[in-house]
Amino acid sequence: MPNTTDCRVLEVSVLGPISIDKLPPFPTDDSEVARRRRIVIDFVVYLALNGGQTTETIDEEFFRNARQPSQVRWNVAAMARHWLGRDRLPRTTRDGVVRLAGVTTDWARFGLYHQRGEDDLALRLVRGQPLTGLSRHVSGWADMWQAQMIAVIHQTGISYGREHLHRENWTEARIGIKAALSVEPASIPAYGLADALARKTDDAVALERSRDAKEQARGALHDPRYV
Rank of each mutant, 00 (worst) to 15 (best):
M1I: 06
P2F: 04
P2S: 08
N3R: 01
C7V: 08
C7Y: 01
R8W: 11
V9I: 15
L10Y: 05
E11L: 02
E11M: 03
I18R: 09
S19F: 01
I20D: 07
D21Y: 01
D21R: 00
K22H: 10
P27Y: 07
P27C: 09
T28H: 10
T28D: 06
D30V: 12
E32K: 03
R36G: 13
R38L: 10
R38F: 02
I39C: 05
V40Y: 03
V40N: 04
I41S: 00
I41C: 02
I41G: 00
V44L: 13
V45R: 00
A48H: 05
N50V: 15
E56Y: 14
E61G: 09
F62C: 11
F62Q: 11
R64H: 15
R64S: 13
Q68T: 07
Q68C: 02
V72G: 08
W74C: 10
N75Y: 08
V76Y: 00
M79S: 09
R81L: 00
R81S: 04
R81Y: 02
L84S: 06
G85R: 10
G85A: 07
G85Q: 06
D87S: 12
T92Y: 00
T93G: 13
T93A: 12
D95W: 09
D95C: 14
G96W: 13
L100P: 01
T104V: 04
T104G: 02
T105V: 04
T105Q: 03
G111H: 08
Y113M: 03
Q115C: 05
R116E: 10
D120V: 12
D120C: 12
D120N: 15
L123G: 02
R124E: 03
L125I: 07
V126H: 03
L131S: 00
T132M: 14
V138M: 08
V138F: 00
G140R: 02
W141G: 12
A142Q: 12
A142N: 07
D143H: 08
D143V: 05
M144E: 15
Q146F: 08
A147L: 15
Q148S: 12
I150G: 14
I153Y: 09
H154T: 12
Q155W: 11
T156C: 15
G157P: 04
G161M: 04
R162N: 15
E163V: 12
R167S: 10
E168W: 02
E168Q: 01
N169I: 08
T171D: 12
T171K: 13
T171G: 08
I175M: 09
I175Q: 10
G176A: 04
G176K: 01
I177L: 12
A180F: 03
L181C: 07
L181Y: 07
E184W: 11
E184I: 14
P185Y: 15
A186C: 13
P189Y: 03
P189W: 01
A194Y: 00
A196P: 02
L197R: 02
A198R: 07
K200E: 08
T201L: 01
T201D: 02
D203C: 04
D203N: 10
A204S: 13
A206G: 07
L207S: 14
E208I: 06
E208C: 09
R209K: 08
S210G: 14
R211Y: 08
R211H: 06
K214M: 15
E215N: 15
E215D: 14
A217P: 04
R218G: 14
R218S: 14
L221K: 13
